[in-house]
Simulated assay, not measured.
Amino acid sequence: MIAPAEPTAADRRQWARYLVEERAEGAVYARLAARRKGEEREILLSLADAERRHEQHWLDLLGGEPERLPRAGLRSRMLGWMAGRFGSIFVLALAQSAEARSPYDAEQYATPAMRADEKVHHEVVRGLAARGRRRLSGSFRAAVFGANDGLVSNLALVLGIGATGAGAGFVLFSGIAGLLAGALSMGAGEFVSVRSQRELLDATAENNDADAAAADLDIDANELALVYRARGMGEEESLARAQRVVSAAQEGIRREATSPIAIQPDHDIVGGDWSVAISSFLLFASGAIVPVLPWIFGLSGGAAIVLALVLVGIALLATGAMVGILSGGPPLKRALRQLAIGFGAAAITYLLGLLFGVGAV
Rank of each mutant, 00 (worst) to 15 (best):
A3H: 09
A5F: 03
P7E: 03
T8A: 05
A9M: 15
R12F: 06
W15K: 07
E22A: 14
E25I: 09
E25T: 14
G26T: 02
A30D: 13
A34P: 02
G38R: 06
E39S: 03
E42G: 00
I43A: 08
S46Y: 15
R53W: 04
H54M: 10
E55D: 14
L59R: 15
L59K: 14
E65T: 05
E67I: 00
R68P: 01
R71C: 13
R75T: 11
R75N: 11
R77D: 12
R77M: 13
G80H: 05
W81G: 04
M82F: 02
A83Y: 12
R85D: 00
Q96C: 12
E99T: 13
R101T: 05
A106L: 08
E107M: 01
Y109G: 04
A110P: 01
T111H: 10
P112E: 01
P112H: 01
K119M: 11
V125A: 15
R126W: 08
G127F: 07
L128Q: 13
R133P: 08
R135E: 13
R135M: 10
R135I: 14
L136S: 15
G138F: 10
S139Q: 11
A142Y: 07
G146Y: 14
A147H: 14
G150L: 00
S153P: 03
V158E: 05
G162Q: 00
T164C: 01
G165F: 08
G169L: 06
V171K: 05
L172S: 01
S174L: 06
A177T: 04
G178Y: 03
G178K: 03
L179S: 03
L179V: 11
L180I: 11
L184Y: 13
L184N: 08
L184I: 14
S185G: 15
M186C: 06
G189W: 04
G189Y: 09
F191C: 01
S193A: 15
S193N: 08
S193V: 05
E199M: 09
L201H: 03
T204E: 11
D211L: 15
D211Q: 15
A213E: 12
A221R: 15
N222G: 15
E223K: 14
L226I: 14
R231I: 06
R231T: 08
E236S: 07
A240I: 09
A240C: 07
R244I: 04
R244Q: 09
R244M: 06
S247W: 01
A248V: 06
Q250S: 01
G252H: 07
G252R: 05
G252S: 10
I253C: 02
A257C: 03
S259F: 10
I263V: 12
V270N: 05
V270G: 03
G271L: 10
W274H: 07
I278D: 01
S279L: 13
S280F: 05
S280T: 14
F284P: 13
S286N: 05
G287C: 00
G287A: 02
A288N: 00
A288D: 01
I289H: 00
V290H: 08
V290A: 08
W295K: 08
W295T: 09
S300M: 03
G301C: 12
V306C: 06
A308I: 01
G313F: 05
A318T: 06
A318H: 12
V323C: 08
I325T: 09
G329T: 14
P330S: 13
R334E: 13
A335R: 06
L336A: 09
R337T: 15
R337C: 14
L339Y: 10
A340T: 13
I341S: 11
I341P: 08
G344F: 00
F356P: 01
G359H: 06
G359W: 06
